[in-house]
Design a protein around this nucleic acid. Structure first.
Lengths: 238, 238
DNA sequence: ACCTGAACACCGTTCAAGT
DNA sequence: ACCTGAACACCGTTCAAGT
């Protein structure tokens, strides 16, 4: 019927189309299986055609990050620094949900993309407007770490199988060797949970830690904390 | 003089020697440059010789993790849960210092090695002995996340150049676009610091966040907190 | 029985040849 | 001038041939 026997999409390639296809492909097959060659195949083009739109694979990854982080909504501002920061961080988390490779890729890059800088700038701005000193804001941003972009901070990146029945039970000899882990796993099991990172309520765990930190920040702010108050080996509060 | 003209080491290969060489090589050239072929070359053997001692590269990485995590000292126990947990986590951090690839490799593996399980078990045990319920201990372990193994939780893994003069100054147009980031970077600069993750005092930032969390944990324990007390969108304390 | 070199199926990227 | 296929220097791992 047509002179083009290929069924491949015919839309002309563009940087944006390449990046959106890369994000979709990484979501589908995982970041470790994403290659320039595989991506080109998906787009129905020869591998070298991609190099017209991204200089190399590093730039492709940066562009993918930019695409995802750019999806974070604009900041809510207001007199309540705690609510505003909390909302902005949970927005970042929502934007990165469904792209489990994003945290790993961002951490592996050496520097921030413009969209990341814009996000960090807005969060820092919320702290400053809320009465935090430059000094305290600095340490507070470090304390949030990757959490400011919504990263979960589990020991293992990979989420276990969401079906509890598909997860192997802890064998008796392991339960004997690691009794405290077994106790936690056992108690969590009839909640549909597992050890650390298991089928737990990720959103609850994220907010639990976030709220602990935000409450701690507020206390330090009220105390007028400065880094001159460092005490070796002790707690931050007396 | 000898019938073997090669200068390569002659000690017979063993799993332990392979793992120690791999750790040393990853420390030196970085984890992304560590390959089976490069490691074999370093040991003066043919690549396939490694497969006598590790089944594949995944097992090599697991073994490397085991080697490093196995270096965490035994737990200090005592009546003071806070000091004991703090000491154990800082020991983990010390053991992983100098192996910047370890956090990334551990996170990328799908499950815990025995040494990691042993470490988690000991920390969980300290919380339980300190009067934490199974429920609270569960959420507290999630809140610590990778920090329980001493991971720093920065947005970017790679530490910038420790020499402040070697780090590029923020260009004026970037400072205009991201004024709050620029304010922090400027204030930190005459401390020899940079933005988030820059030449800051990593140990101080780690302990700052750790102490905030430990203080929060202690408050929840004293309150007799249970996860039944979840309140949507609010803080953990009133 | 043991060891190992060649081979396979990849990878990112360069480059020269073809249109 | 533009595009692209072959090629280069890798990679983890299989497998059969050689001792």
């Amino acid at each position: 019927m047509t002179r083009r026997p290929e069924a491949a999409p015919r839309a002309p390639l563009s940087r944006d189309r390449v990046l959106r296809a890369a994000v979709e492909l990484a979501d589908g097959i995982g970041i470790e299986a994403l290659s320039m060659r595989r991506l080109a195949q998906e787009l129905g083009v020869v591998p070298m055609a991609l190099y017209k739109h991204v200089a190399n694979k590093e730039q492709l990854l940066d562009g993918m990050v930019e695409t995802v982080v750019g999806g974070i909504g604009l900041p809510a501002s207001g007199p309540d620094w705690r609510g505003a920061v909390r909302h902005r961080i949970l927005s970042a988390r929502a934007a990165l949900l469904g792209h489990p490779w994003a945290a790993q890729v961002i951490r592996s890059r050496s520097g921030p993309t413009p969209a990341i800088l814009a996000h960090l700038d807005s969060v820092i701005g919320l702290f400053r407007a809320g009465g935090f000193s430059v000094d305290l804001t600095h340490h507070v941003m470090h304390a949030l770490g990757g959490r400011v972009l919504g990263f979960t901070q589990e020991v293992f990146d990979a989420a276990p199988d969401p079906d509890p029945a598909a997860r192997p039970a802890m064998p008796p000899e392991a339960a004997a060797a690691y009794p405290h882990v077994a106790e936690l796993a056992g108690a969590a099991a009839h909640d549909g949970d597992s050890v650390v990172g298991g089928g737990c309520d990720d959103q609850f765990e994220f907010e639990f830690a976030l709220d602990l930190l935000l409450d701690g920040f507020e206390r330090l702010r009220l105390q007028g904390w400065t880094s001159g108050a460092r005490r070796a080996g002790g707690g931050l509060i007396a």
